[in-house]
Design a protein around this nucleic acid. Structure first.
Length: 375
DNA sequence: AATACGGGGGC
DNA sequence: GCCCCAGTATT
């Protein structure tokens, strides 16, 4: 079943000691390493999914200050949770986080569960996060495999091919299971990830600084820059959008509510995904003439009054949503009095801190503000 | 097995 | 510009 392991028993022992020593000396001081509170470990692990440490730190601090424990998170308004997440991306993480908090209150009396079965059953928690929490917060023997560990192990064993393809990932998991230092599972997992994040990086790995260089097959073969092989990625698709910032002379504007999936998708079809199901400016896909497309859309949503107004073009906004490269043309549409729109919110252009919005909406608001400042 | 989901930092 | 990051849920 298992391929023969690439380290002898004494080598494995030395490998573990070297990496744990290195971690003890060089680990970064990160806010979620201050204690073993499973709640805080959990929050950090969710935030860190596909997101760099540097981006997470300020969000983690704010989020934990606002929601210090499971119960606080479970009882909060969803909009408030999303607001704290606004700008971090992958917003389903925030929705799932709160759903899981409510699950923990309902099924575990508010105490974070400590078994694999119960943790894995929580919304938004997969195999990686389960093992991370079990090892880091509870000291249990579960090895994690994510981007860093996969790369480190792949180089150690000189694994060929796309790491996420076929059964390769499971094979890496088996090796990670075998490497796991039984005396310190939490530190071990973090050490493996830390090594991948700081030394054994995707490009230009710093092998000369690596504590376990002598165990690395890729290094022996001089192939550390060729492993892992590049992931196949979906081709990027360009999307042209036009958006209207409806403002009055007091600097207030109109924001539309998060689009619902499924029902009532008569309007611009994939706007929901492009605005991340968050509050957003009236936006439409552009076919030929941005202004007439936008006018047509506003006539439906806002009413005839908008159509008569002047559309002042703002600077073009570029934004990426997974594989889509969005090019968005924003227009300022001024009103003496803002039209009434069902379900819409009216708020100050300069203050978006009270609503959950994506960074695309932030960019548009900034452009509108710049234009307003110049007039 | 393939796809969708944000956003930014590093080169 | 391109790569990819402390992944998960859905189809």
């Amino acid at each position: 079943m298992n391929a023969p392991f690439f380290l002898t028993a004494p080598e494995l022992k030395q490998f573990r000691a070297k990496l744990l020593d290195w971690f003890a000396t060089y680990q970064r001081d990160l806010p979620w390493r201050r204690d073993r509170d499973p709640y805080r470990i959990w929050i950090s692990e969710i935030m860190l999914q596909q997101t760099r440490v540097a981006a997470v730190i300020p969000y983690f601090e704010k989020f934990c200050a606002r929601f210090p424990d499971v119960r606080a998170l479970a009882e909060a308004d969803e909009a408030e949770v999303l607001r704290m997440w606004s700008g971090l991306g992958y917003y389903s993480r925030a929705r799932n986080l709160q759903a899981a908090a409510q699950q923990i209150v309902r099924e575990h009396g508010g105490t974070f569960p400590a078994t694999e079965q119960h943790i894995r059953a929580l919304r938004g928690i997969g195999k990686y996060t389960t093992n991370a929490i079990l090892s880091i917060a509870f000291g249990k023997h579960h090895a994690v495999v994510e981007g860093n560990v996969a790369r480190v192990v792949a180089r150690l064993e000189a694994v060929r091919g796309d790491l996420r393809e076929g059964s390769r990932w499971e094979s890496l998991q088996r090796t990670a299971d075998h490497l796991l230092a039984p005396d310190a599972p939490g530190n071990w997992n973090q050490a493996m990830m830390e090594l991948g994040a700081t030394i054994c990086t995707p490009r230009s790995p710093q092998c000369l600084l690596c504590p376990v260089e002598k165990f690395c097959r890729a290094r022996k073969l001089g192939r550390q820059d060729l492993i892992p092989e590049k992931r196949k990625k979906r081709a990027t698709v360009g999307v042209q959008l036009a958006t209207a910032v409806l403002v009055d002379d007091r600097g207030r504007c109109i924001l539309l509510p998060p689009p619902k999936n499924g029902a009532g998708k008569a309007l611009a079809d994939d706007i929901p995904t492009l605005v991340s199901k968050m509050w957003h400016f009236p936006t439409v896909a552009v076919s030929e003439d941005p202004v007439s497309d936008l006018r047509g859309y506003l006539k439906n949503v806002v009413g005839a009054t908008a159509v008569l107004s002047r559309f002042v073009p703002l600077r073009k906004i570029r934004h990426a949503v997974t594989y889509r490269a969005i090019s968005l043309l924003p227009f300022l549409v001024k009103f003496k009095e803002l039209p009434r729109v069902r379900g819409a919110k009216i708020l100050l252009l300069k203050d978006f801190s009270s609503v959950p919005v994506s960074n695309l909406t932030r960019k548009v608001a900034r452009a509108a503000l710049e234009a307003a400042d110049h007039s």
